[in-house]
Each structure stands twice: as C-alpha cells, then as structure tokens.
Design a protein around this nucleic acid. Sequence first.
DNA 1: ACTAAAGGATGACAAATATCATATCTTAAA
DNA 2: TTTAAGATATGATATTTGTCATCCTTTAGT
Lengths: 226, 226
Amino acid sequence: MSKCEQCIVREFSALKALNKDELLKLSDCKTSFSVKKGEVIFEEGDSLDGIFCIKDGVCKLTKLSSNGKDQIVKLVTKGELLGQRSLISEEPANLGAVALEDMQVCFVPKSQVMEFFNANNKFSLSMMKNVCHDLKEADNILVNLAQKSVKERLAIALLYLEDTFGLNNDDSLKIQLSREEISSIIGTATESCIRLLSEFNKSGLIELTGKKIILKDKKGLRKLAE
Amino acid sequence: MSKCEQCIVREFSALKALNKDELLKLSDCKTSFSVKKGEVIFEEGDSLDGIFCIKDGVCKLTKLSSNGKDQIVKLVTKGELLGQRSLISEEPANLGAVALEDMQVCFVPKSQVMEFFNANNKFSLSMMKNVCHDLKEADNILVNLAQKSVKERLAIALLYLEDTFGLNNDDSLKIQLSREEISSIIGTATESCIRLLSEFNKSGLIELTGKKIILKDKKGLRKLAE
DNA sequence: ACTAAAGGATGACAAATATCATATCTTAAA
DNA sequence: TTTAAGATATGATATTTGTCATCCTTTAGT
C-alpha cells in the first residue's frame, strides 16, 4: 500500500488541505486499482460510496441523452478527484465515468471523506471551490452550446484540448480522442465533426496525420473561437 | 428593519440551518431593497461583496455570448439565494442577474456569510448542496442543448416553467417571459421560438392568448420532450 | 387619445447541420 | 497474414435552424 503523502493528487485537489495525520488515515483506508482504457469507473445512476483520486490517466464524464447519444460533459485528468458532487449531494451519480487511457485510481470511502470534511475546514472549502469551479465551467460550456456554431465549438474544443492536456514531441495533441468522442464534446454528429476537421486541415488551421492532430494556426483557431 | 426569522428565504435556502442567535446577527447586518422589473441586480464580472436573499420575485441569470446574444442560464426565484458561487470561489460573478418581475431582496455582506460558513457546519453543507444541485442542473441543461432539437428544448422549457413557477387562475403560466427570453432559455433565434410556439398552438399542445401561455396537452409536450 | 417604440407573427430564403449511403483505411483477433 | 470489425472520410440529400424583410399588435409615454 503506497503512501498518499507524495501523491500527485495532493498537488492539485482538495487533498492538499489535509495534514500529516489525516494523510496517514487516508493511506490506511484507500484502495488502489487500475482501469484499462475504455473501462467504466462508474455509471450514471450508480450510488457512489466514496470519491476517486486520479493518480494517472484521463477519463470522460458522460451523460446518455434520450436520443441514444452520449454527451461528454467534462474530462477529468491526473491529479483530480471524481465523485465529489455525488458525495456532497448524497445522490446517485449524474454522470458516468469511462477511462480514455489506462488509469491509476484510488478509492476513498465516503465515511473517511466526510470525516475530513467535518473536521477540516480548509478541506471542505477547497472541495467546495472545486465544485464551484465546475459549475462555472458548466455554465460557460452551456452558453457555448446554446450560442456558438459547431465550427466555433470545434475550434474552442481543440484549443482546450491542447491547453489542458498538452502536446507530444511532434506537437500533436497528447490526448487521443476518436472523432466520435470529439463530436460528443462539441455536441454534433460524428460526420459533421469529421467534415469540419477536414476543412480545418485543408485551410491550414490544423494538420491531420492519422489520428494525430496538430494545431498549426492557433491564432486562426482562436479567432474562429471568438 | 424586518426580522429574518419568519422570512420565506429561511424555508428554502441554506439559511434554514441558522440558529436564533445567528438569525439575529443576520437581521442586524442585512440591508433590504426592492428591484423593479428589468433592473440589474449585478452584472457579469461584478465583484460581489455578499449574497442576495430573494424575498419576492424572480430573476434571470444570464451570460453574454460573443455573438452579442444573452443566454439565460438559470431562473432564480423567491426563497432562493443569489451569488453563492461567486462568494465561495472568491471570483467575480460569472453571470449577470436581472429582475423579471418586481422583487424584494436582501443583501448580506460577505463577512457575515463567511462567519456563519465557518462556525456552522450545517449551513456550509447546505450551501454546498445548493451549489451541487446547480451543477447537476447545469450539466443536464448542457446535455439537452447539445443533443436535443429546438422543438424538444421548447417543450422541456414550457414544462419546466409550469412546474417551477406554477399557474394563474386561468391555467396560464404564472411567469411572464417575452418570446426573446424564452428563446434565450432554449438557445435559439427569437423567430424560431415564435414559430414553434405558433406550431404548438396550432397542433393543440398549448394555447396562446396574447402573452399568456396555457399548456393544453402536457402529455403531448412530455412526449415531445422525451 | 395619439403616437412612437417595442414586441410578436409570418413568409421567403439562406445557411448550418443531420442523415444515409458508400468507400477507404486502421486495428485487432483468428 | 488474413480477415472482419470498427473508425475515418466524403458525397448526396433532407431537415433544421437562422436571417432578413415586412406587417400586425400591444404598450408606454406624452
């Protein structure tokens, strides 16, 4: 069983507010496991008995719409927590979580989180700020979905993916998403997304090489994104 | 200066978690004021030095998109609080608030809210649950905007307005929104919204009499909304 | 009561987006 | 390696939605 003290999740999440004693408790009660690409961490409607710490990898949070299509609501990556809203609300998960890459995850039982929550004001405030940040982001995405064209949303999404997940050595986006997944982020048909990527490619905004995407003209993309 | 003890906001918001002493403090520090229909309570980007309690009336929370159109992100009504996210995040308001009706509002300074927040665990947990609820709602709306047609979104919005704000004696929706505002909720052009309302009217789903809207066939609307 | 301004309605048309069909390419399993 | 399944690409077409113009109706102000 590894220690939580040096874990990357401590750097980026509410766990940074925990003191040494609390970290020891955390190490004791957590369970580690790995998740293969494509595997489900939890499904929409599941009751979560705790939160997940993402030590490595990226997953998507999705919701199935009644038209049968999945919408990606958020991508969650290394260093972040998963399941906070559900835990605080004491409600089943509103979104499902699926690994986009192989992941290393820890599970911390609800009882332990609530103990920190009640005992450590900094921890609860920090967690709250995360939820608030998510709310702000969700509102902003909501406005984009309502007011921007698919083309604009694609430009925004590509810039977001580069900013958030960075680049490989060849300047291509580090995060690997299928065309269908990109469509599911921007809320459009897969074919429309593919067509626009081709168009961006032809007009020199991006460069497509197989699955790889390189943002060639970020200024142009930013202008498109407005 | 009126007492907070009997205030309707206590019934529905995090204020229900305050004890008698705290309520007295609240009464002491709050300022009451009224807002006329159409007036701005705060604007996107404003730094809020506290939260607002809505004693009466309804307001819209909007965000201006780069295309020049306002998107209504949420309607907030009698009994609810305003500005919680901004307060917790210690960030400027992400959304602007404009009265849809004449309102009675109280303002509670940040210092006092934070005092309750730190001293009273129930209060902070309750407030957090509100933010979590907002997040869930925002995610759900986001999915609808991404995946549902304008017609479906209109049906959903009409049902929501009836459920949330109720009916007048003549069965018409109690909340009065302009066509432009309805468009701004469902994220479409005003003309498209007007056209669909006419269509719903002709097909017997709703009945339009001037500004009044009566949901005639809720079953049909629910089916449309899926 | 009159008038201007705003809101609402509708047609004609354009643009954006979805859908369906099909072809090609990639990947993983036998 | 071969093959099948899935992913990507693209054309043709249908549908949805937006835009612009115009007219009608209501509302607020003088």
